[in-house]
Design a protein around this nucleic acid. Sequence first.
DNA 1: ATCCCGAGGG
DNA 2: CCCTCTGGAT
Length: 219
Amino acid sequence: MKKADVFEFFRRLAEANPSPETELEFGNTYQLLVAVTLSAQATDVGVNKATRALFEYVKTPQQMVDLGEEGLKEHIKTIGLFNTKAKNVIALSQILVDRHGGEVPADRDAMVELPGVGRKTANVVMNCAFGAETFAVDTHIFRVGNRTGLAKGKTPLAVEKQLEKKVPQPFRVGAHHWLILHGRYICKARTPECWRCPEVDLCAFKDKVLDRGARKAAA
DNA sequence: ATCCCGAGGG
DNA sequence: CCCTCTGGAT
């Protein structure tokens, strides 16, 4: 995508949604870290449903350690991969207590050291909690980047590097959310809704779905 | 059957 | 690179 088009792409997203936010619900940075960890292969709606009750009384890593692995499992049973997630969250919480004074470190490398926290999760927390210009490339951003031609790459890391290079300054903090929301609600995995996409004229996607009626008839 | 804001291990 | 963990929605 040409430089001027990239700017226009984000300008429109920003215009439509001036202050984008995560759809995950949380009350502090620690809860955000836990929520993002739980969100692997799960929808935000599903994660929120599980954390609503949990976060009522678990607001610190120490309180999570006190709850324990089995207690946590009871709360997150309805989310996929709950066994591994429960184990990781308890272990991660213990490390925060032991080595970080009960706080989430404002440092990506330190966060990635935590069990269950990879580069993508760390990038989300750095961006949402600390306002860092990080691009957490999840399934949505990977797809949107490659489809549109905004940031092509064979791996999430490659797409991340492209975004670091291409996203212009006024949009670097918000880009993560704009791209995810765009992917979730318009540039969907199965049936992208190009007919109502505000950026369709800037997009390189070859199989654009421009007519809803035609597509329904074909299906 | 396929997807959802992945990470860890082989 | 591959596989596994895992339930709910569509």
